[in-house]
Amino acid sequence: MSGAEQQPATPKAARAPIDETPTLQIATTDSAAETVEHYFSESQFQVLERLSDIIAPPISGVPGALAAGVPAFLDFLTSQSSAHIQNLYRDGLDALNHQAQSRFKTDFKGTTASQADEILAPLRKPWTYEAPAEPLQAFLVLAKGQILQGTVNSREWISVVSKRDRRASGLGTYWHTID
C-alpha cells in the first residue's frame, strides 16, 4: 500500500489488549428480542391483553401495560408459577370470557368499557389482607397487582417516568451469587 495508512471513518471503542481479561458488553434478552408466548391459550391471552389494558392503560404519555409487554411477561411468569397460581389465572381468564358471553353475547375482548366494568365489579370491593375466597375476585386482585407491578417495572414505563421523577429510576442494589 502506498502513502499513509487508511484510518477507519468512525473510531471504534478502545479494544483491550488481547492478553487482558475482557469485560464484554452484554445485552439483556428483553432489549433484543420478544417473548414467545406459549402458556395461555389464544383466547386466554386475548383476555389478558384486554384486562391489562383496562387495569393499566396508557395515561398522559406514560406507557400502559400493553406497551410494557405485560401480557407476554405474565404468560412467561405464570408458566413458571405454582399450580395454584396457574389455575387461578387460567380459570380467571376463562371466567371473564364466560361472563362476557353469558351477559353480553361477546367475548371479553369485545366488551365495551361499561360492559367490562360490570364484569370487573369484584375489583371495586374493599381491600382485604387475605386473598378473597371467591376465585374470580382472587384472580382479579392478583392480576391487578401483577399487571401494575409488571408495568412500572418495565423498561418502557421507567424510561418515560424517570425523566419526570428521579425516584422512578428502577435502580436497585443487586447481589450477585456469593461464593
Binding site: 439483556t28 428483553d30 411477561f73 411468569l77 413458571q80 408459577s81 405454582s82 397460581i85 401483577q146 407491578q149 409488571g150 417495572n153 418495565s154 423498561r155 421507567i158 429510576s169 428502577g170 435502580l171 436497585g172 442494589t173 443487586y174 447481589w175 450477585h176 456469593i178 461464593d179
Partner: peptide, 27 residues
C-alpha cells in the same frame, strides 16, 4: 457461609434487566 466482598458481590441494576422483571423466580 462464605465471606462477602462488597465490591465484587453487588452492583447497581435496573429492575427491568433482571430475568423476572423484579418479581423473582416463582417459588
Amino acid at each position: 457461609g462464605p465471606e462477602v466482598d462488597f465490591t465484587r458481590d453487588r452492583s447497581l441494576k435496573r429492575v427491568y434487566d433482571l430475568p423476572y422483571r423484579g418479581f423473582g423466580r416463582p417459588g
